[in-house]
């Protein structure tokens, strides 16, 4: 009897380990494929040049337009999200809103975070149509802001919520107002978490394609004004992989590698930076 049960135990443990190995090996496979395919195609010209004539037939040029465009889009959206999101994260705290209101808004934000980015893209498109604006960097940034704002607010909200009450009480006892305490004590204590949230949001923003498909457009030129269309890395990959010309497909691989490197660096960077900043605060 016990033998059979021990055997069952071992069988399921084996299944678990195999499952986990499967998941991890898929990750490794993705990283490997992109590196192996992308590395040979990645060179200085790819990074520094914009598409030249005949680029889409395999001639000279690079994807500098997409790199710069993506950095602008994700950077702009992250900045806007931070400006709007930090006050929102504070507004969710019990000093500023009732438990119920905060609870409902948290729920709404979680649901918004789950809304597909293609829906945000469609909504952005509707608004731009209504205003008579064509696909532009501004449109892309605003739509992307909608995509990453809920995530950023909730991430910041969680770290701000973790600030111990005792710490705030010390500040109140010293005569500071709620807002002064928020700025001087809470913000400083939560800063590592907030930095992590911001960097991760940037990572999410730069990888998103569906939201900017309608709203940011695409162009072979470097962005000059926020009202002009702008290229982006995800869309560069998407468009170039669809062509039948091998040289152009090569560039999709290179763009994918570049995007992956950015995302990896962002992911690792947020962790390292978060930990480094966390040294200065008490836990």
């Amino acid at each position: 009897m016990n033998k059979r049960r021990q055997l069952e135990e071992r069988f399921f443990r084996l299944c678990m380990v195999l499952s986990l190995i499967l998941v991890l090996s898929v990750l490794v496979a993705i990283l490997l494929t992109v590196f192996v395919k992308g590395a040979p195609a990645l060179n200085l010209a790819m990074i520094t040049q914009t598409p030249k004539g005949g680029y889409y037939l395999g001639k000279e040029g690079g994807i500098a337009n997409a790199i710069v465009g993506s950095l602008c889009l994700a950077g702009g959206a992250t900045l806007l999200s931070l400006l709007a999101g930090l006050p929102l994260a504070f507004a969710l705290q019990r000093e500023y809103s009732k438990r119920r209101t905060a609870g409902v808004t948290r729920l709404v934000l979680d649901v918004l975070w789950g809304v597909p980015s293609i829906v945000y893209g469609a909504f952005g498109f509707v608004i731009m149509q209504y205003l008579g604006v064509r696909a532009s960097m501004l449109g892309g940034i605003l739509t992307l802001t909608l995509v990453i704002l809920p995530f950023m607010v909730r991430a910041m909200d969680e770290v701000i919520r973790m600030v111990p009450l005792e710490l705030k009480e010390i500040s109140y006892a010293a005569g500071a107002t709620v807002w002064e305490t928020s700025l001087a004590v809470v913000l400083r204590q939560a800063l590592p978490g907030i930095v992590t949230a911001v960097i991760l949001s940037f990572g999410r923003g730069i990888g998103d394609a569906a939201a900017i498909l309608f709203t940011a457009g695409y162009t072979d030129y470097l962005p000059r004004s926020v009202m002009d269309p702008v290229a982006s890395l995800p869309l560069a990959i998407f468009f170039q992989i669809a062509t039948p010309i091998p040289e152009v497909q090569q560039r999709a691989y290179a763009a994918a590698l570049l995007l992956l490197i950015i995302v990896l660096v962002v992911s690792l960077g947020s962790r390292v930076l978060g930990q480094r900043l966390a040294r200065n605060i008490l836990h």
Partner: peptide, 23 residues
């Protein structure tokens, strides 16, 4: 493993798509 799983979550969807096309 937790950060590795997070990493998997952070890979852009076009990269997944590209990998899908290739593999």
């Amino acid at each position: 493993i937790a950060p590795v799983i997070d990493l998997l979550a952070g890979i852009p969807s076009v990269v997944y798509g590209l990998w899908g096309v290739l593999v």
